Amino acid sequence: MQIGRRIYYEKKTGNVFVDTGERSGSVRETTIEEDFTTYVPLAERVPETVGHIQLEYGQYAQDFAECNGVRVNPETLALEFSYPNPNEPKELPIFRKPLSVELEEAKKAALDAQEAVLEVYEMLLGMQTT
């Protein structure tokens, strides 16, 4: 069995304060109520002020491995990551959508651009043969 991480965050600010991590093997999925009794930072909070996101096993694995911070955007409820800048190690974190998502979007944009160029090229070739 494989269980994805569950992220608990403060609804007002989006600050993450519990990341259950991923689990596999002889494990069982816990309920939110169980988590509130198991994790001290959750037990200390009023449940109505806490949000959570359940991820699939392996979802954003590379982003979690490379980031130096994670939060939930309180407006969009999407995860945002900050990544270390090797040239400025003391730089304040800048949160953005996961790099894995940005990479997929860039790949799609590049393919769309290639298709558009190909269409123009084919159109120009058609004009030359007529």
Rank of each mutant, 00 (worst) to 15 (best):
V101M: 01
R28H: 08
A116R: 10
E22K: 13
R71Q: 11
G21M: 00
V50L: 03
P41N: 06
A113W: 01
G21H: 00
S82W: 05
S26E: 12
E91C: 01
P74Q: 00
S82T: 04
D35P: 02
E115V: 15
S82F: 04
G21K: 02
S24Y: 15
G69E: 05
R23C: 13
L99Y: 10
N73G: 02
Q2G: 15
H52F: 13
V117F: 11
Q54D: 14
L79T: 08
R6V: 07
K107F: 08
E88L: 14
E29K: 15
L77N: 10
E75R: 12
K90H: 12
S82G: 02
F17P: 01
T129N: 14
E75W: 09
V46Q: 13
N68R: 10
L124S: 03
E33V: 15
C67P: 01
P74G: 00
R71D: 06
T129L: 13
L55R: 00
F36K: 00
M127N: 09
E91K: 09
L103T: 15
E105K: 08
K97V: 11
L103W: 13
Y8Q: 06
V70I: 12
G51I: 01
E104N: 08
L55N: 03
E102F: 10
N73A: 02
P93M: 09
V40K: 15
V120A: 15
F36A: 03
E10T: 12
I53S: 08
Q128R: 10
T130P: 13
P74W: 01
G25N: 05
A116F: 06
P47T: 04
K97H: 14
N68K: 10
M123A: 13
T20F: 02
F64N: 09
E56Q: 14
V18Y: 04
D19E: 15
V70H: 08
Y60T: 05
G14K: 02
I7W: 01
K107G: 05
R23K: 09
R6P: 01
N73H: 04
Y83D: 06
E102C: 14
C67S: 09
M1F: 10
P89K: 00
T13M: 04
P86V: 06
R96V: 12
G51P: 04
G25K: 02
E115N: 14
Y60S: 06
Y121P: 00
A106I: 04
M127C: 11
L55E: 03
E102N: 10
E119G: 05
A106E: 09
L103G: 04
P93S: 11
V16G: 05
T38Y: 08
S82D: 01
L42A: 01
L77S: 15
G69T: 00
E104W: 06
L55H: 06
P93Q: 08
K108D: 14
V18F: 04
R6M: 03
T130M: 11
E102T: 08
R96T: 13
P41W: 01
L79F: 07
N73L: 02
M1P: 07
R45C: 09
E34R: 04
V16H: 06
M1W: 09
I94Y: 10
Y60V: 07
N85Q: 01
T30G: 06
T37Y: 08
